[in-house]
């Protein structure tokens, strides 16, 4: 009997090439929104307070950053630098960079009082489980400084903005 079973087993064909494993195992594939190109995230309450800092008052700091266009350029460059920086690239790998570009832009623009609403998640939720450490934060701060420098933001204005982000330390550094 056993030999027979073995024989049958050895005669088994490899599963057909076109087997839909996701269906076979009930895996739901995340589908990018055809409009925004973003992957869905778990539901959360949209609130400007999620940005994690009180925005500046007045419009001078937004001007220092070149308004919405300047801020968009800085946020994009910041993401580019982070995802290609060997120090932190692994942490960003596999995350939705399309969404990250949008939410970071919104967050920067909101905090700099350049006329945006922040619709992303709060900092603790967004960074939960990423396993970031202080040197990772230092690395992305250097990248942000580089992005701001390239956009000719004065050092005084750079530091004023970083002062808004520095207190988020406990939420974005998780170990």
């Amino acid at each position: 009997m056993f030999e027979l079973a073995l024989t049958f087993l050895m005669m088994q064909q490899a599963p057909a090439e076109n087997t839909d494993w996701d269906e076979a195992f009930g895996v739901e594939e995340a589908v990018r929104d055809p409009q925004t190109g973003e992957l869905p995230v778990d539901p959360y309450d949209v609130d400007n307070a999620n940005a994690g800092a009180k925005p500046f008052s007045g419009s001078s700091i937004a001007a220092d950053f070149g308004g919405k266009d300047g801020i968009r350029q800085i946020a994009d460059r910041f993401v580019d630098l982070n995802i290609s920086d060997p120090r932190v690239a692994a942490i960003f790998a596999g995350h939705d960079h399309v969404r990250l570009r949008r939410t970071l832009y919104e967050q920067f623009c909101y905090i700099l009082n350049a006329g945006c609403e922040y619709t992303g998640r709060d900092m603790a939720t967004a960074h939960q489980g990423l396993g970031t450490r202080k040197p990772d934060l230092n690395a992305i701060v250097e990248n942000l400084q580089k992005a701001m420098r390239e956009a000719d933001v004065s050092f005084v204005a750079q530091n004023r903005f970083l002062a808004k982000l520095a207190p988020m330390y406990g939420d974005v550094v998780t170990r």
Partner: peptide
Amino acid sequence: VAQTATAQVDEAPSVLVESPPPADYNAKL
């Protein structure tokens, strides 16, 4: 098959994360 598939998915990023940072990494600002 399923296990190897998930193992690949789960392990790849964590291996990257655990790998030591480059030698010239100045970790302080």
